[in-house]
Design a protein around this nucleic acid. Structure first.
Length: 113
RNA sequence: AUAGUAGAUUGAAUAGUUGCGUAUAGCAAAGUCGUAAGACAGCGUACGAGGAAAGUCCGGGCUCCAUAGAGCAAAGAUGCUUGAUAACGUCAAGUGAGGGUGACCUUAAGGAAAGUGCAACAGAAAAUAACCGCCAGAAAUGGUAAGGGUGAAAAGGCGAGGUAAGAGCUCACCGUAGAUGUAGUGAUACAUCUAGCUGUGUAAACCCCAUCUGGAGCAACACCAAGACUAGGAGGUUAAGACUGCUCGUCAUCUCCUUAAUUUGGUGGCAUGAGGCAUAUAGCAAUAUAUGUCCUAGAUAAAUGACUAUUCACGACAGAACCCGGCUUAUAGAUCUACUUUAUUU
RNA sequence: UGGGCUGUAGCCAAGCGGUAAGGCACAUGACUUUGACUCAUGCAUGCGCUAGUUCGAAUCUAGCCAGCCCAA
């Protein structure tokens, strides 16, 4: 099963936001919650007020690219939701910063093998 | 050389590693997920976002409402002419008006003599020529639209004759309206004659005239599976429904009321089309016809990413979501074609 | 994706062709020993932006911009 499992319904997102713990990185904020399944699920939420569709897509793609690499080495059974940090300018978006952010977060949670 | 005008094209490129979506009668397997309908994994191969994909401003296809019907009204849209188109509020060619030295650009451009409304302040007066004035007359009264300077706008303009004073009352020139002729499919243009000219502006105020318009939208709609409900009453022709009102007509395994429920998942719709490109013919052109050739995204929380190397002008605006034809708006730069102004030289 | 609505001072708002009412807030002055209350005066560079119609647009027309609501 190589496909990335994603969160789909609105209430699933709300669950993570309300009950989950959050971790703040330089460009990305992560909400984390344990789930019932034996795999991880990913959700990315970027509001349409932030910027237009092209830039939103770029953020999503970069987060997804990082997640794919790091997700292999994690302990399964979590829901993740990523949000863009509003204090950061969108034009500074870069792959390396997001990579370091998410690596730190995952190690804080303690799921990195 | 300089400053511009109009139109068209393009919208970084190459290589490697890795990753994503769709297709696949290629290989391999006969399995996995799911109650079911149904869906799918590995390797290989092919293909994979724009000129605006945007705004959702018009028009059409498609689907359902009856097959989308008839008449009157209401509501809305358009508004010089001819043509193009499936259609349009779009496009092309022209006409008038306005702007620019010019190439060229802009233009919702029917009707104010069907009727109604409005025109603040100022001004005698904003459409009835009332008031002051001028002239005649003893007065009553009559004649008059020259003058009464404000205003965005003042009763065709200006000059001469004429008169008691005046006046298109008469005349020349200009403007306006009408008729006739010529040119043109036509808007209209030009010429001649006639009328002395009474009626200011506003229709992007109501309105009148001409032409056109049924409604809702792919989250439409159809089918499949699971689950819930499946109880009671009313109607069978005008009650309710099919955009609004009235009249007519049509429909139904239909509709309405009370209680309950109106959910979830999947498949199709969904990518060959009023398609693109090239050539020829017709046409000033938009476009049409014929022949040849090509098939180039199809997701469903939504696919193009990341890294490395090289080159240059160092990369703007920006992401398909049922599909087409337009319009509008955003846009770094690059290339090409035609034309104009000014200056200098020959 | 589709459908609809609204933009007027720091805030709430009236006005729908004739040159921006009102309230709160703010500033100044008066009253008061001081403060509050009260009274007086002031505050819109042009009505979200850009064009057009008109003698004249907040108002009419067209195109943009921003915000909000509804269906699922």
């Amino acid at each position: 099963m190589k496909k990335i499992k994603t969160l789909k319904m609105n209430y699933e997102f709300k669950n993570v936001f309300n009950k989950g713990k959050y971790y703040i990185g330089k460009q990305v904020i992560l909400y984390d919650l344990k789930n019932k399944y034996d795999y991880n699920r990913l959700g990315i939420a970027i509001s349409s007020k932030l910027c237009k569709a092209v830039k939103r897509n770029k953020i999503k793609r970069k987060i997804r690219a990082v997640y794919q690499i790091l997700e292999k080495d994690t302990i399964k059974g979590h829901d993740f939701v990523f949000i863009w940090n509003k204090n950061e300018n969108i034009e500074n978006l870069s792959y390396d910063v997001i990579y370091n952010d998410i690596k730190k977060m995952f190690s804080k949670i303690g799921i990195l093998k």
